[in-house]
């Protein structure tokens, strides 16, 4: 009988060890979504979330956008509340590329082609809530 349960202390120990790790004490939530510009997925840009609501924990977070998608896992996500969204989309300026053996003499200009209402003069807001999938898509 005893032999059948000899593994129990081990199981208890592992559960105990796993329980020690609370990597998300603020109860942040996973945030994800898709960003398109003129119907095309954005491949090089940033999305940032600035806390504007009256949430107690004021967290700033964001993610690089790649292949039209962004996502922040829960430990680096946002706590529930209201956020202002700012998006930047980097695009190479056509004809600006100069390749030189000295990389500092190489030149290429990038410009931010996100529309102002999503970028510099953003009016986009989201509300992050617990108990729901926080998926926010932006079509520019």
């Amino acid at each position: 009988m005893i032999k059948q349960y000899f593994f129990l202390p081990f199981v208890c120990f592992f559960v105990f060890v796993l329980g020690c790790a609370d990597s998300n004490p603020q109860n942040r939530l996973k945030i994800e979504g898709e960003v398109t510009l003129g119907g095309n997925p954005v491949n090089n840009g940033n999305i940032e979330f600035e806390p504007v609501g009256n949430q107690k924990e004021r967290t700033h977070s964001g993610s690089a956008i790649s292949n039209g998608r962004y996502s922040m896992p829960a430990p680096q996500g946002l706590v529930a509340g209201e956020y202002r969204v700012r998006i930047s989309v980097m695009e190479e300026v056509p004809g600006s590329r100069v390749d030189n053996p000295d990389p500092m003499l190489s030149k290429v200009e990038y410009r931010d082609i996100a529309p102002p209402e999503f970028g510099s003069q953003t009016i986009q807001k989201i509300t992050v809530e617990t108990d729901k999938v926080n998926k926010f898509d932006f079509k520019m």
Binding site: N43, N44, N46, Q76, Y110
Partner: peptide, 18 residues
């Protein structure tokens, strides 16, 4: 401006994500 170790890409001259 951004949190430490943010997943937002740093904006740096001469650099690019791809």
């Amino acid at each position: 401006y951004r949190s430490p170790n943010t997943l937002t890409a740093d904006n740096v001259q001469f650099s690019n994500a791809t």
